[in-house]
Design a protein around this nucleic acid. Structure first.
Length: 483
RNA sequence: GUCCCCAUCGUCUAGUCAGGUCAAGGACACGGGCCUUUCACGCCCGCGACACCGGUUCAAAUCCGGUUGGGGACGCCA
């Protein structure tokens, strides 16, 4: 182990949806480890899911990562010696490597349809097995497989897992972890659309980009043996694996947007300082080893060590984040704080976004701040009397159920005024409730007021995270109403 | 269900690797008080945890085993 290679780590977000606090968390650890060891921090965009990946999301991720202050050394927007840094631009590479696997017998084509896979999966569950795919197409003769591929029959490429023995690896935080090979199914490496899955792409890219330490969330630990088998199939040296504990909701489940605001943008919107966010993330699952709780990025890097990581999944406690933010605000010099205020709440961008909504509703500039409070308040008070008074045909409990279901279904709706309007109107029809009654409930839940700019424009401006959070808060309050 | 990971106050954590200095320390939240024209801030006090059962040892929060509990994974998503 004397051939010390220069440390290279990466953060590899998938550009689907809003930039996530988990990305910043894993990013912070990677960043700190790189800085601590004089290494490079790489940003790689994992956009192999062409159904869900969007350029807007990618741009938002870059923006959010920069906002918190985790600047990368190599990435899609700034290049580097190991590009391209966007997986959708590396298709040739993956195809080439798939060919290697096919040739050396480590992978095989699978012609099963999604329907067939569904029933196989169901059967496996019934047999109380952990395994997914049962290996049906693995038994097809190579000549026949080749013929069917050449004939253009739709297929995926699967990894041929060893059938016996076990595969293990050393996790830097947990030690030896190993799995019986017969527990692991033949993972799809390349989809029928010709794009690789995460498993193939991340192994190929990590190797080609000379990543030395794969530092990622614990949700990946179960697929690591598949990756190890891939490294072996290619004849490559695997990197060091480090699986970080998962951030949690209050109920300890994996952090999710329905139970907790997870969008970095949300915290930016309510006026969390980026250094507070980083400070807070830095105290989840890691401590400086003394009583310091308020620290900056440099101090964190200074003290960072895998030996100081604790493995219990930390709850993302917004109250503590708020406290930390308050401490930093109070510590800040007045001119600095004043300019921060202008940069965030009164930025050109923020004000321009809100002005169209309230311009015709004010007669003096002084009325502006009051009109926009609900865009930036984390804990918006909801006047329950007002809300309950608006209920004509439903009880508070019924409205709670209605709103909860509404939040759930809203997940799949593009968060813009028109689609939201279409969705909510349809929802009223489906639930056979007067538009006015539901809309007023939503309006009060989301803004705390009866009189606001048009609901859907307001919702769009508020953003998904805030709307979801408020609606769910209202659901809880409605449940408690006693008539 | 199967496999894997984890386990100190309600929450974030120190202590665990190198057992004794821990009748377990700090912070958030919560309760009370002080300060104060109010509210906050600040300060003080309080509440509050080694999941359980065995084993090893002179000695276990710390090591070992089991149980329980929690979480994750089991997608042509990452």
């Amino acid at each position: 182990m004397t051939d010390k290679k220069p440390v290279r780590v990466r953060i590899a977000p998938s550009p689907t949806g809003d930039p996530h606090v988990g990305t910043a968390y894993v990013g912070l650890i990677n960043f700190a480890f790189a800085r601590k060891n004089g290494g490079r921090f790489v940003l790689r965009i994992e956009d192999t899911d062409r159904e869900r990946s969007t350029p807007e999301s990618e741009a938002a991720i870059l923006d959010s990562l920069r906002w918190v202050g985790l600047e990368w050394d190599e990435g899609p927007d700034k290049g580097g010696d190991y590009g391209p840094y966007r997986q959708s631009e590396r298709s040739d590479l993956y195809r080439e490597h798939i060919r290697t696997l096919l040739d050396n017998g480590s992978a095989y084509p699978c012609f099963c349809t999604p329907e067939e896979l569904g029933s196989i999966r169901k059967r496996q569950r019934e047999q109380k097995k952990n395994k997914g795919y049962d290996g049906t197409c693995r038994r097809i003769e190579p000549d026949e497989a080749r013929r069917r591929m050449d004939a253009g029959e739709p297929h995926t490429i699967r990894l041929a897992m060893p059938l016996e023995g076990e595969t293990g690896f050393t996790d830097r935080l947990r030690g030896e972890v190993s799995y019986a090979n017969d527990q692991i199914d033949d993972q799809i490496l390349m989809k029928s659309d010709g794009f690789p899955t995460y498993h193939l792409a991340n192994v190929v890219d990590d190797h080609l980009m000379e990543i030395t330490h794969v530092i990622r969330a614990e949700e990946w630990i179960n697929s690591t043996p598949k990756h190890v088998v891939l490294y072996q199939a290619f004849g490559w040296e695997p990197p060091v694996f480090v699986h970080l504990p998962l951030l949690r909701n209050k109920d300890k489940s994996k952090i999710s947007k329905r139970k907790n605001p997870v969008a970095l943008n949300y915290y930016r919107q309510i006026g969390i300082l980026p250094e507070s966010m980083l400070n807070f993330l830095g105290m989840l699952g890691h401590s400086l080893g003394d009583d310091r709780e308020v620290f900056d990025l440099e101090e964190f890097i200074q003290e960072f060590s895998f030996d100081r990581v604790s493995l219990g999944g930390p709850v993302f406690d917004v109250d503590k984040l708020l406290w930390l933010n308050g401490v930093r605000i109070r510590d800040m010099a007045v001119p600095e704080l004043a300019s921060r205020l202008r940069e965030s709440l009164f930025s050109q961008e923020a004000v321009e976004r809100l002005v169209p909504l309230i311009r015709e509703r004010i007669d003096s500039l002084g009325e502006f701040p009051d009109k926009v409070t609900y865009f930036t308040l984390h804990k918006l008070p909801i006047p329950m009397e007002l809300m309950v008074k608006g209920l004509k045909t439903r009880t508070p409990a019924e409205m709670a159920t209605l709103l909860k279901k509404c939040v759930k279904e809203m997940d799949g709706v593009e968060f813009a005024a028109e689609p939201l309007e279409e969705f909510l109107k349809g929802y009223c029809e489906e639930k056979d409730i007067k538009i006015g009654e539901l809309f007023m409930a939503v309006r009060i839940a989301v803004t705390g007021r009866k009189a606001t700019p048009p609901l859907f424009e307001t919702m769009e401006a508020l953003g998904r995270a805030a709307v979801t959070q408020r609606l769910l808060a209202a659901v809880e309050l409605l449940k408690q109403v006693r008539l």
